[in-house]
Design a protein around this nucleic acid. Structure first.
Lengths: 141, 141
DNA sequence: TATGAAAAAGAGGCATT
DNA sequence: AATGCCTCTTTTTCATA
């Protein structure tokens, strides 16, 4: 259903999702129309879930990015799921296995902001903070 | 330099980076031309680093997504940075603080594939695997 | 599925306020 | 900074293979 050409198109779109069909068509040896049909198919299937942005959080004033692992207090799981949605600092939240229940990616202005954010989290569970130093380039997404 | 309107435009683009200037202009009460100028400015500043995709890894045959924390063997840091770039399973890699040195997001076909991947990582350091169960929706990116 | 051609929509350049 | 206008590119739709 999803063949090698589809995968190549996805790889190209990962690098620049605004590339035109014509541009992509040259790199996969197809006509622009065919590329468009394949992308439509991938969208319909749900393989392409959406088109997003890569943001430089530092330039938006968030000089601290962290991963936070959260071990939720017993019986509070559903409550925490609702609560987490209220925090604009959370860029992404995942349920995970292991001693911690949630994995959060969080953008914060500075250390004080981080402290205040942790102060909120410790009402929900036990947080463990991992400060992001840098992103390794030329990874696959 | 980056005002409230810019931030609103970024929020709108996060949801759908393919939205037209006209579409965005209606939601921020500006003309399409002004929206375009602001987006150009954000790109020039580097606040918008790129346009990307959200992929459903499961539909591409990767039924397992995990975070892996890697505590690198002493003295191997530079070597590991080079090695990690060779693994197509790694979607994203970050240097972090704490007992572990790297945070990886990895997509894998199945348990066997995960086992094989871990077998490679344990030549570089001590990995800790956190299986992703689900992503919480309506977060902010 | 893949292609090409015509119509519609959108982006880019530029001058004006 | 914001806007309108004009041109060019791209997308969309449709007919055909």
């Amino acid at each position: 259903m999803i063949d090698k050409t589809d995968r190549k198109i996805i790889e190209l779109l990962k690098v620049n999702s605004k590339a035109s069909f014509a541009e992509i068509s040259k790199k996969v040896a197809l006509s622009p129309s065919s590329v468009r049909e394949r992308i439509n198919k991938l969208e319909d299937l749900g393989a392409i879930k959406g088109y997003s942005l890569e943001i430089d959080q530092a330039l938006l004033g968030n000089n601290l990015e962290v991963f936070i692992l959260l071990k939720v207090f017993t019986g509070k799981l559903q409550y925490v799921i609702v609560e987490l949605n209220k925090y604009p600092e959370i860029l992404k939240a995942h349920r995970i296995t292991g001693p911690h229940n949630f994995h959060l990616r969080v953008a914060l202005r500075d250390q004080l902001h981080l402290q205040q954010f942790i102060d909120k989290l410790i009402t929900l569970g036990e947080p463990t903070t991992l400060l992001i130093l840098s992103e390794l380039e030329s990874t696959n997404q």
